[in-house]
Simulated assay, not measured.
Amino acid sequence: MYNKQVVFIVACAGLLFFGITLITLGSVMLDLRLKFGLDGVAAGTLFSIMPVGILTGSLFFGPIGDRCGYKLLLVMACLGLCAGFQGIAHAGSPALLKACIFLFGLSGGVMNGATNAVVADITVRGKGASLSLLGVSFGIGALGMPQVLGAMKHHFQWFEIVSAVGWLTLAMALLFAVIRFPPAKQQQGFPLAQGGHLFTDVTLVMIGLFLFFQSSFEAIINNWTTTYLTAGGHMEEQAALYALSLYVAGYTVMRLLAGSVFRMVSPAGMLIVSLLLMPAGVVLLQVSNAFVLSAAGLILLGAGLAGGFPIMLGFVGERYAAYSGTAFSFVLVIALTGNMLVNYLMGLIVQQYGVRYLTTVAFAEWIFMVLLCSSIVRRLK
Rank of each mutant, 00 (worst) to 15 (best):
L285I: 02
L285W: 04
Q286T: 12
V287N: 03
V287T: 09
V287F: 08
V287E: 07
S288I: 01
S288K: 03
S288H: 01
N289A: 13
N289D: 15
A290I: 00
A290H: 11
F291R: 10
F291T: 12
F291L: 15
V292F: 12
V292R: 11
L293E: 03
L293C: 12
L293V: 07
L293H: 05
S294I: 00
S294R: 09
S294N: 12
S294F: 06
S294V: 01
A295D: 11
A295G: 10
A295S: 15
A295C: 11
A296D: 09
A296F: 08
G297M: 07
G297W: 05
L298T: 04
I299Y: 04
I299F: 15
I299S: 09
I299P: 05
I299W: 09
I299T: 08
L301F: 10
L301A: 13
L301Q: 14
L301P: 09
G302V: 05
G302N: 10
G302H: 06
A303K: 08
A303F: 05
G304N: 03
G304A: 06
L305V: 11
L305E: 15
L305N: 14
L305C: 14
A306S: 15
A306Y: 02
G307V: 07
G307P: 01
G307K: 00
G307Q: 09
F309R: 07
P310I: 00
P310R: 02
P310H: 00
P310D: 02
I311E: 01
I311Q: 00
M312T: 15
M312A: 14
M312C: 15
L313F: 15
L313C: 12
G314S: 07
F315Q: 00
